[in-house]
Every structure is written in C-alpha cells, then in structure tokens.
C-alpha cells in the first residue's frame, strides 16, 4: 500500500535549514495497523504529513497504492486525499459552524455526491460511531471523545484506503482514549490500513507494528507477537 524509498525532507527558514527526515525507507502493506512513535522533533508528524500528501518532500520516492506521489499539483493532491486518505487530527479540526452530520458529509460534497445521498451515508457512519442522536449538534456542543468520533466518521465516509491519525488521543483523557482506540482498532479489523502517530505507549501498544523514529531516521521497529511487542530489527543500515 505504502512504499517509501530514501525519503528526505528539510525545512528552510531565513536563518537556518532543518533536515527533518534523513532517508526513510518504509513499506506498509494493505490492512496493516501501524503506529509511529518518537520524541518530539524526531520527524514523525512530518512523515505523516508527507504520507497524507499535506506536505511535499525533497528527495526519494513515495508510492501510494501504486501511484507515485511526487510533484503533484494542488488539484491532483486534493483528489488523492479525497479518494485515498482519511485524516484524524489531535485537535479534531471539525468546522465549527457545521453540525456533526454536515461535518461528516463534507468530503462527499467534494466528491460531488448529492446532498440527500451524502446525508444518508453520513448518518450511517455517525450511527456506527454511536452518535446518531448527536447528528444535529455543533462541535462546541460535543465532548472531546464525541468530536474525535465525528472526525473519524468524516475520515471514513469517502471509503479511504488509508487512515492517518495524528495524535488522535492527544487531547483526550484515558477513558476516552480507550474508546477512540477501540474505534480505530475495529476499523482496522474491517481491513483499512491504519497509521497512527503518537507518543503514548498505550496507543502504540494497541497497534500491530510500531515504528520508532529518532532524529529523522527509523531507529527500530517492533511487531506484535502473541499480543506482545518485541524488537525485531534496527532498520537504518
């Protein structure tokens, strides 16, 4: 599903340039349940943004579902995001003047699905998240866990191939964290490739594969074996 070769990314400001990703090699197959961890500044958010085609990269190749994602126009990037990727963010990023149902339905608006049809589909997804009764509520009237579930419903509505979650539980307490992780785990079981960036041990432990980043490189990764993670290999040669 995702194939990355020698990926480099630098940020340039007026006074200094920062080499954030220093040659990442990564393969994620369809249906995998992956978390990316690392200290802040290790480049995990940058990697996720590149994976989500929200940001560009300087060197290397990135193939998503067989397509080379490189030097895309804004429009092409938008189409890929719409077709392939569902985002879940730490700060939910719901549109505050739209109610839960309208927020969930929005990606279908950009896919030119009719209003009636997309509202029906959105309601199904909300229902799946247990939020049918909250469909007319504005984000400001929802709890953090509810907001994140609305955001997940929105990420799912366009039937993406990959779910990218950036610290999805960062703004939640431990109970709601479990709740949201259950939702993401269940989605993965339905066959969706799920990638979560997190620095929380409990979150990464729930996934089947943990990729540790350090200073812009993959330090090592672990896979779940009989429900337990163990170190397999240091990656960067």
């Amino acid at each position: 599903m995702i194939h990355i070769r020698q990926l480099h990314k630098s940020y340039h400001t007026e006074s200094l340039s920062l080499h954030v990703l220093k040659g990442i090699n990564l393969d994620i197959e369809a249906g995998e349940y992956v978390s990316v961890t690392g200290a802040s500044g290790s480049g995990k958010s940058t990697l996720l943004n590149i994976l989500g085609i929200l940001d560009s990269y300087d060197q290397g190749d990135y193939h998503l579902n067989g397509s080379l994602i490189k030097n895309l126009s804004e429009k092409e990037a938008a189409v890929y995001r719409n077709e392939m990727i569902g985002f879940v963010f730490q700060s939910f990023n719901l549109i505050n003047f739209k109610n839960a149902l309208e927020n969930v339905a929005l990606p279908l608006y950009y896919k030119k699905v009719s209003r009636k049809k997309r509202n029906i589909i959105a309601m199904e997804h909300l229902d799946k998240m247990g939020l049918r009764d909250w469909s007319k509520h504005l984000p400001s009237e929802l709890s953090g866990g509810q907001k994140q579930r609305v955001a997940i419903a929105r990420a799912m509505i366009a039937n993406p191939k990959v779910i990218l979650a950036d610290e999805p539980t960062g703004a939640l307490d431990s109970t709601t964290t479990l709740e949201v992780m259950d939702v993401l785990t269940n989605l993965n079981r339905e066959g969706i490739t799920t990638i979560i960036v997190t620095h929380e041990q409990s979150v990464s432990d729930a996934t089947n594969r943990i990729i540790h980043l350090k200073d812009g490189m993959i330090e090592y990764e672990t896979r779940k074996n009989n429900g337990v993670h163990a170190t397999i290999q240091p990656v960067n040669f």
């Binding site: 989500g52 929200l54 804004e74 429009k75 938008a78 189409v79 995001r81 719409n82 077709e83 985002f87 990023n93 719901l94 549109i95 929005l106 990606p107 950009y110 896919k111 929105r154 366009a158």
Partner: peptide, 16 residues
Amino acid sequence: TREIGIRKAIGATPLS
C-alpha cells in the same frame, strides 16, 4: 484560514 485548511485536507481543490 483554518476552515480552508480542513476543507483542503478532506479533498477540496484550491479552485473549488
């Protein structure tokens, strides 16, 4: 700006 960012993330083209 934020709303525009969200719309872009979920697949809105700049033109739209």
